[in-house]
């Protein structure tokens, strides 16, 4: 078994309104920053032991499918690194 950190990034699907990101963008503009767009995402860092990187990614992906993301509104990505 090898120790990995799986990083799961969950973001809204393209086309799903993100009112919090829009509000944050407006707040940045009130601070006189120039920007075209802002997207927000949630990131989860999961320490786990697995036989190999694929197994670690599969397990983290299942965590995303079943809880961390809501497939109705979210896309997600999984990155795995040894720790």
């Amino acid at each position: 078994m090898t120790a990995y950190t799986a990083t799961v990034t969950v973001r809204l699907k393209h086309g799903v309104l993100d009112p919090e990101a829009e509000t944050t963008k407006q707040a940045l503009e009130r601070l006189d920053f120039e920007l075209d767009a802002l997207r927000s995402a949630d990131q989860f860092e999961i320490d786990l032991d697995a036989a190999d990187a694929d197994a670690a990614a599969d397990r983290a992906g299942e965590m995303a499918e079943r809880l961390l993301a809501n497939p109705t509104i979210h896309d997600y990505e999984v990155d795995v690194a040894q720790r």
């Binding site: 799903v16 993100d18 009112p19 919090e20 829009e22 509000t23 809501n70 109705t72 509104i73």
Partner: peptide, 10 residues
């Protein structure tokens, strides 16, 4: 089915 998420008004 579906999901209830953040109001448009935030």
């Amino acid at each position: 089915e579906g999901a209830f998420t953040t109001n448009e008004s935030a």
